[in-house]
Write a protein that binds this DNA or RNA. Structure first.
Length: 825
RNA sequence: GGGCGAGUGGCGGAAUUGGUAUACGCGAUGGACUUAAAAUCCAUUGGUCUUAAUAACCUUGAGGGUUCAAGUCCCUCCUCGCCCACCA
């Protein structure tokens, strides 16, 4: 008998799968389609890591399972090649990003094949290829033509290390999420996409899809819809009006001042001459601070009195107007009323000695007293006091009534605000899609005509970013100088490029028709494949890529380029694989585990695949543990030995004493396994699916040892075949090899998922739990579906239970069919 | 500060959603095979408890409650993780 040698088996089958295009999905097939999407990687120089391995392995389990079930499965792969990581890698290694991308892509493809992923490589895409980004540019122009892309001078987040502007979503704790550099503010004219126009649809659309709750919640929170009111505060002795957004109009009687953001456009006019110097100083001060500096000290609320007063529209009281940097210019109206019922406002009032009164108190009397005495800040809903005719109303009631009252006098309107901002779509970098716009002195920004797409990235020797906020493309005259498509007069090309999120916002569509040069995707193929049935990715993309690509799909559906607005029917997120020490893998910590090292250590891809599936539930963040790998290897070895032993002893094998009981037992074991694995796979419980395969193997060993002579050869054969088909989802190489060893010429992958015999699932006998006073006193093996009286009789006859029940008064008996009987004595 | 989630053996983790807690794997211990080791196979493995049972009691972060029955439901508290955060 040969030893289990994963290396030779795996390379043999990988070559065959690749040569014979096993995983090429068929366009417009009569079979039902099923699209399994996993996030495509940046083709970084370091190659595939354990995180990719987990994500793609889980996707592969599903793809193989669905294929066996008879679906026409599309499981595609490509490369998200534009963006800073590739550019930084190319700069560091002094090669062109084009070459770096090409080399790295090859390496990735090779590595993914080594792991046995059933990917359709015929549809491979590369977002940095002109034949691809031509359509990214074309899609951008659709945004432009529908007034969804516009230019605006904005104070943007600027990464001084990467020398580029960033979207809000890319700034984490005031730092660039990629390089961890402190982000600065910079005023630049930028291209923006109107994602805010889709804020409501992006929230509402979540109802039509099946996303993990925490993913949907996170998107909803990120969009941050809050309903409230916009209130007009007239300025005393002036025609000016300051508008204020609030969700707590019920606290308006507590308004003790108005507070404007330093950037608020009315600040100048509201500042009286004698305060001008200090106020200007303060504004200058805040502008020089980064967001992080501004947030360093949440306790100290700096600010200045401007000198003017506003009139509270509800009671005509005069209240002073301040500026303070804790008020955000780009949320709501950039102004708030300061009141005692908001933690931050209350701190500001206290620190600037502004007198305030309480207008909402809790029901609890003791707590109410504390609130009135201003010992405690009360920020929740309660009941109104000091509020004229509104006294006694609940906060909720008051919000309706007060708003209506102010609306009737044209002093307020209903308003919904969003935390979401428009998407800053310009980057000042070389390695991205050029924005296909020409600036004409007469016609302004003009779309590049479709026939001139793609606007190709010029070949250059230096693509280092610049400090001045201009793209390196601006230095290349031959690129910049062009003519206006309308008037043919000299004009200049846009030199900003798109963010790395552009290509990935629609990449899944290109898989449906990856080589089309007439259209971004053929409508007929689109109709067949769209939308994606299952999408697996990282939690970290929830408010970036996932939100962006939903936005694109929503827009494209609106202009009839897509059949429906939601691109992904199901979204799940896999957990992160940490280093063996339980912290994030990083080179500096030296705790990086490389999947290819595992392969070359002799374990093989099948063991590794099982290990990443078995180690924990798929969505749990977990530390890598190489002992799991030893276990899954041992398991495969046991499968190998059992089946090989069967095959080699086949010739001399004689079932001497065939017993239908044994044969049925074998059938039941296999049947139960199929049923269990199927249930688990449908719920993505890969770890327990693998566990039940292991459990079944243990049973097979046992029955092989004890009852081998009672079972016919064919029935062993059938049992092993069924076992291998299920195993092929997880460990395809060894399954193929053993399938062949069992005597098959064709691939195991052309098999069908085993059908479950429902009759066999019904137990011939059940183990009943016998409790006395809720305590387990033993079990009883009985025929199924016996009623309470029959079971009671059986229990009373049993010697074992006598001591518990004799001389006891049974007060009550609880009975659950086929499950349990409980005597309360 | 807000939102979401978690806490089960020496370890990774199971538990059909209220019905035998600790499946499966790792590790450990003992045995078989071997000159020996590795590999493999067999057995044991939550605690009181060193041996035995169809024995008893205890055990799912802590405390209380509901129930015939709680890892699972409710209340209070503790700890940890993730996401967001001066968003009015």
């Amino acid at each position: 008998m040969t030893r289990y040698n994963p290396q030779s088996i795996e390379s043999k089958w990988q070559k065959k799968w690749s040569d014979e295009n096993y995983y090429q999905a068929e366009d417009l097939s009569k079979k039902t389609k099923y699209v399994v999407l996993v996030e495509f990687p940046y083709p970084s120089g370091t190659g595939i890591h354990l995180g990719h391995t987990r994500e793609y392995t889980l996707g592969d389990f599903l793809a193989r399972y669905k294929r066996l079930q008879g679906y026409n499965v599309l499981f595609p792969m490509g490369f998200d090649a534009f963006g800073l990581p590739t550019e930084n890698y190319a700069i560091k290694h002094q090669i062109s990003p084009v070459k770096a991308t090409k080399d790295n892509m090859k390496n990735f493809e090779k590595q993914m094949k080594l792991l046995g992923f059933s990917l359709d490589w015929s549809r491979m895409i590369n977002t940095s290829d002109p034949t691809y980004y031509r359509w990214t540019q074309w899609l951008f122009l659709q945004f432009f033509k529908h007034d969804m892309a516009y230019q605006k001078e904005v104070s943007i987040n600027w990464c001084p290390f990467c020398k580029t502007g960033l979207a809000n979503e890319e700034v984490v704790n005031g730092r660039h999420e990629r390089c961890d550099t402190l982000v600065e503010k910079k005023n630049l004219k930028q291209w923006m996409l109107r994602i805010t126009k889709y804020a409501d649809q992006l929230i509402d659309g979540l109802k039509q899809v099946d996303y993990l709750d925490k993913i949907a919640d996170q998107q909803i929170n990120w969009i941050g819809r809050s309903s409230g009111a916009k209130i007009k505060f007239k300025v005393d002795q002036s025609d000016l009006v300051v508008e204020v957004f609030t969700t707590r109009i019920d606290t308006i009687y507590s308004a003790a001042c108005l507070i404007l953001a330093p950037e608020h456009p009315l600040v100048k006019q509201l500042t009286i001459p004698q305060n001008r110097a200090v106020v200007n100083e303060y504004i200058k001060d805040t502008q020089s601070k980064s967001d992080v500096d501004r947030q360093v000290d949440h306790q100290t609320k700096t600010g200045h009195f401007l000198g003017s007063y506003a009139i509270n529209p509800i009671n005509q009281k005069l209240i002073p107007i301040y500026i303070a940097d804790f008020v955000l210019a780009n949320y709501g109206t950039g102004a708030v009323f300061g009141d005692i019922h908001d933690q931050r406002d209350a701190e500001f009032l206290k620190q600037h000695n502004i007198k305030a009164s309480v207008s909402v108190i809790p029901k609890d009397k003791e707590l109410a007293k504390k609130v009135i005495d201003q010992v405690e800040i009360f920020g929740q809903d309660g009941y109104l006091i000091n509020s004229d005719q509104f006294n006694g109303l609940s906060s909720k009631q008051a919000r309706g009534v007060i708003l209506e009252f102010l609306i009737s006098q044209d002093l307020a309107e209903e308003q919904v605000n969003y935390r979401l901002r428009d998407w800053v779509f310009s980057r000042q970098h070389y390695w991205g899609e050029p924005i296909p716009i020409i600036h004409c002195p007469v016609h302004g920004p003009v779309a590049v005509p479709e026939k001139d797409l793609p606007v190709k990235l010029p070949d250059v020797s230096s693509y280092q970013p610049t400090d001045d906020g201009k793209s390196p493309l601006s230095k290349i005259d031959s690129f910049v100088q062009t003519t206006c498509p309308i008037c043919h007069q000299p004009a200049k090309r846009e030199t900003d490029t798109m963010p790395n999120w552009a290509g990935s916002s629609w990449y899944y569509l290109r898989y449906f028709d990856s080589t089309n040069d007439k259209n971004f995707v053929d409508p007929v193929k689109l109709q067949y494949w769209y939308p994606v049935d299952f999408y697996l990715g990282g939690m970290e993309h929830t408010t970036l890529h996932l939100l962006y690509s939903r936005f694109w799909a929503n827009f494209l559906a609106d202009i009839k380029l897509l059949p429906s607005p939601e691109p992904y029917l199901v979204r799940r997120a896999q957990g992160i694989v940490l280093g063996p020490d339980g912290s994030k893998m990083s080179k500096s910590k030296g705790n990086v585990v490389n999947p290819l090292d595992i392969l070359s250590n002799g374990y093989g891809a099948d063991s590794l695949r099982l290990a990443v599936g078995f180690i924990a539930p798929y969505d749990l963040t977990t530390a890598w543990n190489s002992e799991i790998l030893a276990g899954t290897y041992r398991f495969l070895n046991r499968v190998w030995n059992l089946i090989n032993q069967f095959v080699t002893s086949k010739a001399n094998f004689k079932a001497e004493d065939i017993s239908s009981k044994s044969e049925e037992r074998l059938k039941i074991i296999i049947n139960n396994m199929v049923s269990q694995v199927e249930l688990d796979l449908n719920k993505l419980n890969f770890n327990t699916a693998i566990a039940s395969m292991m459990e079944t193997l243990n049973s097979l060993y046992k029955i092989n040892q004890e009852e081998i002579n009672h079972i016919q050869l064919e029935n062993w054969q059938i049992a092993f075949e069924t076992y291998l088909i299920v195993l092929s989802v997880f460990a395809p190489h060894i399954a193929e090899e053993l399938w062949q060893i069992l005597g098959h010429d064709s691939s195991i992958q052309l098999s069908n998922w085993p059908t479950i015999d429902r009759k066999l699932l019904i137990d011939k006998e059940v183990t009943l739990i016998v409790q006395v006073n809720g305590k387990l006193r033993g079990t009883l093996v009985i025929k199924p579906d016996l009623d309470q009286a029959q079971v009671e009789n059986l229990v009373k006859q049993e010697q074992h239970f006598k001591p518990y029940l004799e001389n006891q008064l049974i007060k009550k008996t609880v009975f659950v069919v086929n499950k349990l009987i409980n005597f309360v004595v």
